[in-house]
Simulated assay, not measured.
Amino acid sequence: MGQRADAPDERHRRPDGVSDETVAALGKLSEALECVERARGHLYSLHQLIGHADLMLDEAVERFRAAGHQQLADRIATELVGRNVIAGRWTFQIVEDFDDGYHALFRELDQQARDELVGGRRHLYEAEMKERRRSRGRPGHEARPASGG
């Protein structure tokens, strides 16, 4: 009894005895983690954009000085250049705290749930959803992409 060529591979099939509710809960946890991963990317974007803006302030200060606006240039240079966006925190510290705290714990609990409940398998909910769609005969919705390396 071989596996169908277009069926999910073993890594994406539900182990015996795992309930629909468990698969759905793992799917929701995975979906939540994907949201957190996107938020993490935005946090890194914030870090990079604020850093870039801070470097551009140096040029703005120089131009204000060249235009004869010394007082404004001095205020920008002393009050804004290099300023923390959150009191006592540089943006890289915010990123590090997020990565080492919330993000690390989220990933740890996601891994623990998958290890304990389904032998570490990932995306079971998605694989089953894909298989249901494929079984409706929709071209291009195969459960497993063609192997290619």
Rank of each mutant, 00 (worst) to 15 (best):
R4Q: 14
D9F: 01
D9M: 06
P15W: 02
P15M: 07
D16T: 04
V18A: 02
S19K: 00
V23E: 03
A24T: 13
L26V: 02
L26Y: 01
K28M: 14
C35N: 11
C35I: 06
V36Q: 03
H42E: 08
L43D: 00
S45A: 12
H47L: 07
H52F: 15
L55S: 15
D58M: 13
E59Y: 08
V61G: 06
V61T: 12
V61F: 01
E62H: 05
Q71L: 11
L72M: 12
D74G: 09
D74Y: 03
A77K: 02
A77W: 06
N84S: 14
V85R: 01
V85D: 00
G88Y: 01
T91Y: 10
Q93I: 03
I94C: 03
F98N: 00
G101K: 01
H103N: 13
A104D: 11
A104C: 05
F106E: 04
R107M: 10
R107H: 07
E108L: 11
A113D: 06
R114M: 13
E116F: 08
G119D: 06
G120L: 01
H123V: 09
Y125P: 06
E126P: 03
A127D: 04
R133N: 08
R134Q: 10
E142T: 10
E142Y: 08
P145L: 08
A146T: 07
G149L: 07
